[in-house]
Amino acid sequence: MTEDELKNLTADKVVDARGTACPGPLLAAKQKIAEVQSGQVMEVQSTDVGTKRDIPKWCNKMGHEYLGTVEEAGYFKIFFKKQ
């Protein structure tokens, strides 16, 4: 998805993992994904730079569709669709 599309995307579930260091955001994604249905979109917010690489790799491994990352002031929004 383009950055503009991502910025206009409303996630079905938003997980605020800001302020936690690795592996906090990844574990938050792992734990909270159980709360969304297949095909729904989750947004993980993180201040940890490594998460930008970690969650796309995790999505690839788990079969979820990584949609993209948007950089906000001081944090990132990482979007993916549950398989």
């Binding site: 592996p23 574990l27 994604a29």
Partner: peptide, 11 residues
């Protein structure tokens, strides 16, 4: 502990 967390995330 950190590495175990990564493994857990990968099921």
């Amino acid at each position: 502990g950190v590495i175990s967390s990564g493994a857990a995330a990968l099921d």
